[in-house]
Design a protein around this nucleic acid. Structure first.
Lengths: 134, 134
DNA sequence: GTATCTGCAAAACATTTGCAATTCT
DNA sequence: AGAATTGCAAATGTTTTGCAGATAC
């Protein structure tokens, strides 16, 4: 995604596209890894020397409020963030630690909840070994 | 579950059934809520005045190593613990906060992972409103 | 009496908050 | 100038670790 498109997307969502916000948004979009706050900070810090973790937190919380990003609780210790908010499964490799998107067509979930349970959202996390490690 | 049965179960799993361990195990077994460390500590503390959170953590980590308990990452801030390690779904009510077990027969998951992905375990978390709150 | 277990205090992290300085318009 | 944004430092909350004292066999 080019900078121009990102700027106008953020503006359309009511987010002022400051430089740190723009770079964090582009980072999520380009890597499509499922980064922790620390990964984003560590990767962008060399290129944006004044960047602070607080701004990374602020930006992610803002993107979440706007529904642009979702938080994953696939790790026990830290949150991960995903710019893909469509319905899909996450696979965490217990060997290399990598989190991979599994497209919706690989998983079919039939939810027939007992009466009165109204689902709004769901997350399927699968833990195991990825192709590179098996 | 009676104390006797719990004692012999723990011994069979190679866990010395000390008083705190026994009480924590019985707590998980009787309530079948999906408690945080703090919930266990707060609930048992009045009856076991010398109990410490460290011991709650130690005991839960021990039970997890032995495969008797599983950690749930359904909450963003804290781990929850479940003594039911069978395949089932967890429903978190966003209104009252309660986490409910949804038995396996209410959910059918067909996992057809891309080649090379070897699943070991999976967790399905559903977020919404429970019968009492809807 | 030796191993293990417990629990306090401190440390290690992740995340949030208060606030002053900076930036943008 | 005025409003929003950034980033430092401190606070908060969860979990782990080190270690001394207590407990169990």
């Amino acid at each position: 995604m080019e900078t121009e498109a990102a700027v106008s997307f953020l503006e359309k969502q009511g987010i002022k596209p400051s430089y740190p916000r723009l770079r964090i948004y582009l980072y999520l979009h380009e890597r499509k890894n499922h980064p922790s706050v620390d990964m984003i900070f560590t990767d962008l810090s060399p290129e944006i020397p004044t960047l602070s973790k607080t701004t990374v937190y602020n930006t992610l919380n803002l993107l979440m409020e706007k529904g642009i990003v979702q938080a994953l609780t696939i790790e026990e210790k830290e949150n991960r963030y995903d710019i893909d908010t469509s319905v899909h499964t996450h696979f965490k490799c217990e060997s290399c630690g990598e989190i991979t998107d599994i497209p919706g067509e690989y998983t079919n979930i039939e939810l027939n909840l007992p009466a009165g349970f109204l689902p709004r959202e769901r997350q399927l996390y699968v833990y195991g070994t990825c192709p590179g490690c098996s």
